[in-house]
Design a protein around this nucleic acid. Structure first.
Lengths: 226, 226
DNA sequence: TATATTTGTTAGACTAATCTAACTTTTATA
DNA sequence: TATAAAAGTTAGATTAGTCTAACAAATATA
């Protein structure tokens, strides 16, 4: 039962991670299409086709011509290992090196490809076995387990409900910087004061501040816990 | 006066670093030959020739057919920037993640290629602006300056001289593990008790321990300060 | 100094990852 | 259901880094 193969290229690792992320996005059916993959990775569909054939050869994905792509168990475990590294490095950058919320991703994209089992495990220990990264996403354990947490979108709450921010759904720089401007971070308390049916926007109270209105798009980008 | 170009490939960076290291080795004339480079990098001479042409195009080295290779000022500054990253990461691994003396190099070889000016500077700050890495080698500053230190080889000392270990010349695993076995680390005090002319070996006292004999090869692999 | 040895270069080929352009299959829709 | 649109594939080319084998230049040595 040894799933993690270390002889993957930088690029192969990225394809596996992309596939894993896409499978999280479409929870019900964790498959992806060639164009979807290509768009996600910023390459042309032709390129993705070639790579997918290669990953199939290595038994990391199941795939046949014109069909959907699915990770095999081995492919999934390898993807999870990369995600684990990514999120541990993000946590390191944020907590130890004072990187801001929106700066960590880009550097972690590079760091996640460093090959050293010892490094990952020591880093995890150094960070005190964190369960969630700076964006609130769960950090897979060494055995591949992924911590889970109850969370709903802010947009799902009813009037007068109280909650705490647990994660961001949208990790774009522009959204993260907006959150920073609003002093919203993981753990911030929010109360829904009013729901505006007209456009789906919400009037909310952030911590103890003055009420403020946020758009439906905003409310659909933030995960909270009731 | 901006020397550091960030558009260097992983491989190009390695060639620059190798050239820099070779130039330290032959202090008097900091040039290198094609075969020397190739051997150092573990590639064939033909490969090195191609790469050197490319580096010449980019004005990182001066080089002409059948001639010696020399770093330009830009090439040197880029090499120093990589060395800086390498040694800072080694320090991080050793001090914060409990890696041993002989484990840090391999992982730092990978980490040194991460591209992020902010990361390097923040890491340096996090480590409290160390001047020397775990092997006692100087860590270049952000401006390219390299801290210097008085050091001589243990083999140069006379009988009855006292010294402290400041760096290792040989960083091979087998030597580092031997040092660990002898409880020698940076800062350890050593007294030369006797020089054996026959084979250049020394009788030394390490800290407060019992006298012990070490070979000439050993004494020529350790840097100390009187 | 003539020749052998060492050092370095060139030419041609390979692999991984990418592209474009043309083609094929699947799916959606009129 | 016929056809247009979307999705996916193939073929052929490109680039970076590497190799081997054959060759050329420089250096060492008899």
């Amino acid at each position: 039962m040894f799933y993690i193969c270390s002889m993957l290229s930088y690029t192969e690792e990225n394809y596996l991670k992309a596939l894993l992320k896409l499978s999280f996005q479409n929870e019900d059916k964790p498959e992806a299409g060639t164009n979807e993959m290509a768009a996600y990775l910023g390459v042309k569909p032709a390129t993705a086709t070639d790579m997918l054939k290669k990953l199939k050869e290595k038994e990391l994905v199941t795939y046949k011509k014109y069909g959907k792509i699915l990770l095999t168990e081995t492919g999934k475990q390898n993807g999870i290992a990369i995600l684990r590294k990514h999120r541990l490095w993000e946590t390191f950058l944020y907590e130890k090196l004072d990187f801001s919320w929106d700066e960590v991703h880009e550097v972690a994209e590079q760091l996640e490809h460093i090959q050293s089992a010892k490094l990952v495990d020591k880093l995890e220990e150094f960070l005190n076995f964190p369960e969630f990264d700076p964006h609130g996403d769960p950090i897979p354990k060494a055995n591949g387990e992924i911590p889970s947490i109850d969370k709903v979108l802010l947009s799902e709450l009813k009037e007068d409900e109280l909650c705490k921010v647990v994660a961001v759904k949208d990790t774009s720089t522009v959204f993260l910087q907006y959150l920073e401007k609003l002093s919203i971070t993981i753990g911030t308390a929010i109360k829904v004061l009013e729901r505006i049916d007209f456009d789906g926007s919400l009037s909310i109270q952030i911590a103890d501040e003055e009420p403020r209105n946020v758009s439906m798009k905003f409310a659909e980008s933030l995960f909270v816990k009731r």
